[in-house]
Design a protein around this nucleic acid. Structure first.
Lengths: 153, 153
DNA sequence: GTACATATTGAAAATGGTTATCAATATCAT
DNA sequence: ATGATATTGATAACCATTTTCAATATGTAC
């Protein structure tokens, strides 16, 4: 439910001496409902539809705020813009990204994670975060040779 | 030796109906000598020292050319700018990136690669390339709490 | 070798996603 | 309610990278 998200945001705001505003609530609601891996631009479009008064900068600022509050995770793939993912309790996961249609799939594999830590340990490196992305063609795009090219962007 | 690199570049150029120029040769020589993971900016600085006449745009263009020719690999980490790595015969590898001093280390692990392909196969995804980056603190930076911050940009 | 079609270059302007600026406005503690 | 100040919206600024375009260099045909 969004209830949890709103509470988490409120807790963060009061904890930091920040203020809760109608814009923040509105953007959060839309962000939570929005699909995963939303870019700021996409989110702005959705927000604008319901709240024409909210500006571009506010969406960017608020998304950064969500990230600081632990509500969102920033993801920079190779397509130029930053995407944000609503961070519910579910754990970390990595991504499969179709370079043709832009589809993004998720996966998690604890064996890979374990091996990563082995590698790091061997180099005496302390891992704080990691990023694993597999780029290629999704099932559908392997078939549709010339076709496809879903909205994306 | 650079001989190989120059030959590879020449082969690509003639094959594509492009021309070889003193700038391209000069930039290639410096690129091959330069450390791994050079950003365009860094390379430009080095090039400028030996060849003050060469412009910024030419360095960028040439780096892209090298990538197309298979001589360089583009790498976009989370630090904002694109880096290029001279692609000699040695195989693919992934990176450990120190978020404090910017140090970049390499590693390869065929078990991780194998698991990646398992994941992809299960999702019927055709992997064309992948990116695995571990962010954290290198050995030195784990010690030097406040210290450090080597040149890096 | 010379001339020509055109690929390439350098300098500067343009791009594009994201961030900073700033006056107007809204929020919250008092 | 009131005041201190956090927030907003519009717009300008950022900044790495790409384009533009006139001047120049290269490879080919003669």
């Amino acid at each position: 439910m969004q209830k949890k998200a709103i509470d988490q945001l409120t807790a963060y705001l009061t904890g930091q001496g920040l203020r809760s505003t109608s814009q923040r609530d509105a953007i959060l609601a839309i962000f939570v409902e929005a699909g995963r891996h939303v870019s700021a631009e996409e989110l702005y479009a959705r927000v604008k539809k319901e709240h024409p008064g909210i500006g571009y900068a506010t969406v960017y600022r608020t998304l950064r705020l969500f990230a600081e509050a632990g509500l969102a995770e920033e993801q920079r793939f190779d397509d130029g813009f930053t995407r944000f993912e609503y961070k519910n309790s579910s754990g970390h996961h990595d991504h499969l990204i179709c370079t043709r249609c832009g589809a993004i799939m998720e996966f998690e594999n604890e064996r890979i994670e374990a091996l990563q830590h082995d590698v790091a340990r061997r180099k005496k490196f302390k891992v704080l975060s990691h990023k694993l992305e597999l780029y290629g063609l999704c099932e559908r795009c392997q078939g549709n040779q010339a076709a496809s090219k879903t909205k994306q962007k």
